[in-house]
Design a protein around this nucleic acid. Structure first.
Lengths: 130, 130
DNA sequence: GTAGATGCAAACTTTTTGCAGACTG
DNA sequence: CAGTCTGCAAAAAGTTTGCATCTAC
């Protein structure tokens, strides 16, 4: 089953590219792309295809009243733990050393194997600190 | 504004007590308590009241296709980071030392202040390891 | 008796789906 | 041209709300 490079897909990928380190809700994407004539079915379908392909990642954000998908662009984030700012939504990785320290520490102390892919540390980033 | 100890509330609290270390979705609670004659409005309202009071905590779980609330019983978990098993849903804390190590490490290396309350480390617990 | 809760049904929000027509390669 | 996508509108999920009734204290 091959995939076509449709206009809508191109627009969506461009949008995701412009928001590479932020997590964006499906609803936001739908609303934003509507002005470019992309229908919500196309957005949801493409988002979910991209996720299946591992091109983007679904994350969950605490404290969100409406339960919505969040997507993070992530090509080569494998093996890295993410940090995400509660205030501004920006997402990044922590350094590989820290990640290994954490996973090894929790493994030996609590016998729990962290899934780095799925784990997101929430808090306040340096820009939102004040 | 005082609160009454209604039958429904009692049943809900008992249910939550029986699932203390697991995160349960609002929908599951609704479905389960329906057989005891508790209406879904009552469940949602009580759940949200309990959350406001800090008696339970809303968490987000990655990979869930339907975006639903999850609740974790938590009386004195302040200042502790949670770990949650992707397979069985069981939730626990990591030791205080580890938590401090992690927050301090990430703070000095990445200038990011972890919110322990909001952060959940996902992975596989010792019981689900095999 | 009265404030506070409940149940029901209806509204809402977010996501999914069926299908006819449009577009890509 | 064939197989994929899209758009629309309708259906599903999940959650919230208004209101009359009921219950706890």
């Amino acid at each position: 089953m091959k995939t076509y490079e449709t206009q809508q897909r191109k627009i969506l990928l461009e949008y995701l590219g412009n928001h590479k380190d932020e997590s964006v809700s499906a609803l936001n994407v739908v609303e934003y792309l509507a002005q470019y004539g992309v229908s919500k079915s196309a957005v949801y379908r493409n988002l979910s295809d991209l996720e299946k392909d591992g091109k983007i990642r679904r994350t969950a954000k605490p404290g969100e009243r409406t339960a919505n998908y969040q997507y993070v662009a992530c090509e080569q984030c494998k093996g890295k733990i993410h940090i995400s700012c509660i205030k501004c939504g920006k997402t990044a990785h922590i350094s590989g050393n820290m990640a290994d320290m954490i996973t090894e520490g929790v493994k030996s102390e609590d016998d729990f194997i962290i899934d780095k892919q799925e784990t997101v540390l929430y808090g306040i980033c340096k820009d939102c600190k004040e």
